[in-house]
Nucleic acid binder design. Structure first.
Lengths: 228, 228
DNA sequence: GTGCGTTTCAAACATACGTTTGAATGACTG
DNA sequence: CAGTCATTCAAACGTATGTTTGAAACGCAC
């Protein structure tokens, strides 16, 4: 049925792949650009050079297309991040993993956009759009993909920060992921404002430094309020 | 023309105000709930109990309505925040203002939702939706409202952090505001996940502590990378 | 009461959207 | 060659949207 029946011509030119793949590629770019609800079947098919009915034929509905667009990159990305955590846990067999090492993995996917080009620049932006979508069904789609990783990161951070109350670490970790998402969506904008193209490695160092300090901050020590 | 011709009946009941005000109130709640592009003229008018044509009559277009919804709360909010900065600068005449004091003002508007009820809970969420909107025209609308305050905060933070390079402070401040926005949109969600209703004062202390530590972090000192 | 300006109302308009349909195309199998 | 299957295509369907229209309703001044 939905199987690969790709016109047995044995020259699957990379420039003109599957209709299905072409749709997914354009849809991903469109979601990154204008958001999920604003991505239109008609615009996608026009830009991809396929027929209007192609999406409903290959995916069943617009909603199922967005689900596949999400799954496409995220599943791959997830196994990679999980593997990184595995390596980290075996390296630190005693269980005391530095906060910075965990954060490096959390923020690592911004590197992929530059280094190995496995994940395009607009891919992370697309993920950001998913998280910022107001629709409850959309964010429900995200849960199975991101919750396991987040839970595992949280556990490591709780262990790495024995002096901080667990609930406080949870709160801070929640906002670390929020910052990651904000970075996905607006890093290019900030880059445009300040004029200079950023070095990805440097950005990773910055993110880790900022968040590590925030995570480690003494929670019970508010500053001395000034009088007024 | 557009002047207040509010049916000279001298009983402007608070429960049933202007058609215009009622529209704005519903629109604000709707933007907070489902986003700007998803807010529908028809749903607003139905929920507000006014005629479908009322929006185009009173505001001219849907776009001008959203502009007024934004301006409504933000202008008020801005003069208040600016006044807070004024007071802070006179208090610290020498110019050395603690980072925490500046951050308290930045995050202060989350307090308004609880304390004086001048700004409803959904108002901050609405502002968050504006910032997360993919449409370039929408975020262009925000610039004049928020840029002056942000610029002033940045200047204070740069002065308060003489050991951090200016560009680094800019980068970090950018993400502090990102965190603020993320808080607007998802604080209730995190609250729902962890089950307990949060104390607003405590949340403010947490935000300030986290961001202050991040801002002050030594930028040149990456952690000792573990081998592999 | 008459006239006037503002506001409300039901109805229609034009456009965009996701989806469905049925015929046409093309490739492989028997 | 005939048959079967997956795929493509142009066209239409139904619905939702923002906007416009012209008449009706209302309040107020003369």
């Amino acid at each position: 049925m939905t199987g690969k029946n790709k016109t047995t011509t044995n020259a699957p030119d990379a420039a003109e792949p599957d209709t299905k793949s072409r749709i997914i590629a354009v849809a991903e770019r469109m979601i990154a650009g204008r958001g999920i609800q604003q991505m239109s079947i008609r615009d996608i098919t026009r830009e991809a050079g396929v027929n209007l009915a192609a999406i409903n034929y290959h995916f069943g509905s617009k909603e199922r297309l967005t689900a596949e667009v999400l799954a496409r990159q995220v599943t791959h990305l997830n196994v990679e991040r999980m593997a990184m955590l595995d390596r980290l846990e075996t390296d630190y067999a005693d269980g005391v993993i530095p906060v910075e090492s965990v954060l490096e993995i959390v923020f690592n996917l911004i590197l992929c956009a530059d280094d190995k080009a496995r994940i395009a620049e607009h891919t992370v932006k697309m993920i950001g759009r998913f998280f910022m979508d107001p629709d409850a069904e959309v964010i429900a789609m995200l849960r199975p993909y991101f919750l396991p990783f987040k839970a595992r990161v949280l556990k490591l951070l709780v262990r790495a920060l024995p002096d901080i109350p667990r609930e406080e670490v949870e709160w801070r970790t929640f906002h670390v992921f929020g910052l990651l998402n904000h970075y996905f969506l607006f890093a290019d904008l900030h880059c445009k404002e300040c004029g200079k193209k950023h070095n990805v490695k440097k950005e990773l160092r910055r993110l880790v430094a900022f968040c590590a300090a925030g995570l480690k901050a003494s929670p019970g020590a508010p500053h001395q309020a000034h009088s007024h």
